[in-house]
């Protein structure tokens, strides 16, 4: 499969939900080191709501799927993750509006739109030790893969690789935004939980897409 239609996109969201459920405790542990230990719970609540909403929605286009997921996630969790991921999904939906299937260009657009959503909602800078440190390299990798004539699957998998690498770089960063910022130097040595969940989601999408 080289494109994503609305049904396939729902499958990918369900795979993301599965991945979050598997990594829930791990994300809580990461958050416990520099935050309030609830990121795994928050993500799990959010993706359970996404799964439920998508099982009930009558989606005609990928944009409907993104908007449904955004609204469900936002209203289930609030917190920081809610506005950030919801804005990411909404921007992706807006970017691919009118398309019934997402081809390789649209897949790259989707990743960059999500990264832009996180950047504008969170107002963090690169290096602040936030999920942007995973999203930004993911978007750059997706664009590079697109320009190198890679397939949609390769675009997603290279974005996931870059997100994982980006998440790892947050270990050495000192937090400047969000709840961990108050720790100052004590935040160094721990991965940012939001960057970690970003990498998990992109990896789940990439794996799900490739497995098809």
């Amino acid at each position: 499969m080289s494109t994503i239609d609305q049904a396939r996109l729902i499958d990918l969201f369900n795979l993301m939900a599965d991945a979050i459920e598997r990594e829930k405790d791990h994300l809580c542990e990461l958050d416990g080191a520099i935050g309030d230990a609830d990121h795994g719970v928050t993500m799990s609540i959010g993706f359970s709501a996404v799964r439920k909403a998508l099982s009930e929605v009558n989606a005609a286009h990928p944009t409907d799927v993104f908007n449904t997921a955004a609204k469900a996630f936002l209203n289930a969790v609030g917190a920081s993750a809610g506005p950030l991921y919801a804005t990411a999904f909404m921007r992706a939906g807006a970017k691919v509006k009118g398309q019934t299937v997402l081809d390789r260009t649209a897949v790259a657009d989707m990743v960059t739109a999500m990264a832009d959503g996180v950047r504008s909602r969170g107002k963090a800078d690169l290096g602040d030790k936030t999920m942007l440190d995973a999203w930004d390299p993911a978007a750059k990798a997706a664009l590079q893969a697109l320009e190198a004539d890679r397939s949609a699957a390769e675009i997603l998998s290279q974005a996931a690789d870059a997100a994982e690498k980006g998440a790892t770089t947050t270990i050495d960063m000192m937090a400047k935004k969000g709840r961990s910022a108050r720790l100052g130097p004590r935040s160094v040595g721990h991965i940012d939980p939001g960057a970690a969940s970003t990498a998990i989601l992109l990896r789940a999408m990439a794996d799900g897409f490739t497995a098809e």
Binding site: D38, L74, N75, G78, A79, G82
Partner: peptide, 11 residues
């Protein structure tokens, strides 16, 4: 009112 230690959503 939000979830435990989590902001309420906008609605």
């Amino acid at each position: 009112i939000g979830n435990v230690f989590a902001s309420p959503p906008p609605d």
